[in-house]
């Protein structure tokens, strides 16, 4: 379960401090899916970065499964990500020098999981890429790259999956297929899904929906 209380994020700019997040309060129960909807620049991705422990808040607190993120140092937060968090990014973030199989193997290898190659191949098969295991990202289509990213995210069987505009770089039909896959795998593995999107239709498929406007979050 994810809990956020009075979260504030301010960044210094040439014209003085800029408030990006202004007192966010949020609760997402374990196993549910939540969508954060908002226009570009509203602060959605900043919130996602904070929730995943990749950035530090100016004030306020975040608890992941009861653990307060502000009390953890960078390495402890990384450890928490390794154990509990999976990611799907708008720009896929695959390593170009690795094949599809190797990209999926990477988090398993980092965690020292045995049989990384078999597990990775199994997940790639689940996302329908059994014929693309040895392909490099540049030789895959956008939809295929995102499916590799989804396989990578689920391969570690995370408790929480963060998805940042997962269809943002895809055409509508491909996007729909990727979302279908995401929700199917989410249902099977009972992961808590936090989705950042500006697509209302996509948001509607989630259990909870929040709207982000100028750094403030409202339940929809």
């Amino acid at each position: 379960m994810i809990k956020v209380s009075h979260l504030l994020k301010t960044v210094p700019t040439a014209d003085g401090d800029l408030d990006i997040l202004r007192g966010i309060d949020l609760e997402i129960p374990a196993g549910s899916s939540a969508a954060i909807v908002g226009a570009s620049g509203s602060g959605k991705s900043t919130l996602l970065g904070l929730l995943a422990g990749m950035d530090m808040a100016t004030a306020g607190q975040i608890w992941i499964d009861g653990e307060p993120l502000a009390d953890l140092n960078e390495d402890q937060r990384a450890n928490l990500r390794a154990e509990k968090v999976g990611f799907v990014f708008q720009s896929f973030q695959l390593l170009p020098s690795l094949t599809a199989l190797e990209n999926v193997m990477l988090p398993l290898e980092l965690a020292g999981v045995a049989g990384a190659a078999d597990t990775a191949a199994r997940f790639l098969t689940e996302v329908g890429l059994e014929n693309r295991l040895e392909h490099y990202p540049t030789t895959l289509s956008g939809g295929e790259q995102q499916r590799v990213a989804i396989a990578r995210a689920f391969a570690r069987e995370p408790r929480i999956l963060f998805a940042d505009e997962p269809t943002g770089n895809l055409d509508t039909r491909t996007g729909e297929r990727v979302i279908e896959l995401l929700f199917t795998l989410n249902a099977i593995s009972r992961t808590t899904l936090v989705l950042v999107t500006h697509d209302e239709q996509l948001a509607k498929r989630c259990d909870l929906r929040f709207g982000m406007v100028a750094g403030e979050l409202q339940p929809l």
């Binding site: 995943a52 990749m54 960078e74 390495d75 990384a78 450890n79 928490l80 990500r81 390794a82 154990e83 968090v85 990611f87 973030q93 390593l95 990477l106 988090p107 980092l110 965690a111 990578r152």
Partner: peptide, 16 residues
């Protein structure tokens, strides 16, 4: 640098 950012988002620690 980007490679490391991805590794860290996947849970790799600085000392690792």
């Amino acid at each position: 640098t980007q490679y490391v950012a991805i590794l860290k988002s996947l849970g790799a620690q600085s000392h690792e």
